[in-house]
């Protein structure tokens, strides 16, 4: 396993690599979900999953390097994710008011 360093929590020694791996798996799951799922709402949810995974990676590195910027960035990401979820959901609700969307491909009006 690549060695990204270790840190101590109390008496145990944890490796940063484990956290990064977890983040990668969650991110991959989210990406798969975005590409595979058809329902626009579910796609939004998978995007949230990806964002969380990114946050985890940020915080893990922040702990390893003992640099607070990672955590601050994660905070910002959380805020942006919240804003984006709000607006995205508002649009989605609007669309669903008018028609029942089975497939996100039906929403292709914004084509060039």
């Amino acid at each position: 396993m690549p060695d990204y360093g270790q840190f101590h929590v109390g008496t145990s020694t944890l490796s940063t690599t484990w956290f990064l791996g977890l983040g990668a798996i969650l991110f991959g799951l989210g990406a798969i979900g975005v590409v595979i799922r058809r329902n626009p709402l579910v796609i939004l949810i998978c995007i949230e999953l990806m964002l969380n995974a990114a946050n985890l990676t940020l915080v893990a590195f922040s702990r390893q390097l003992l640099n607070l910027e990672g955590q601050l960035f994660a905070l910002m990401t959380m805020t942006v994710a919240a804003a984006e979820a709000v607006v995205g959901l508002a649009i989605l609700v609007d669309i669903f008011h008018r028609r029942d969307v089975e497939d996100v491909d039906e929403l292709h009006e914004l084509k060039g």
Binding site: R37, R38, N39, L41, L44, L89, V93, D100, E102, D103
Partner: peptide, 18 residues
């Protein structure tokens, strides 16, 4: 945020997916 998602899901009711 997740409560918001829950509300929306509840609002939109049952959704079909192709």
């Amino acid at each position: 945020v997740m409560v918001l998602f829950l509300f929306v899901v509840a609002l939109l009711g049952p959704m079909k997916e192709r």
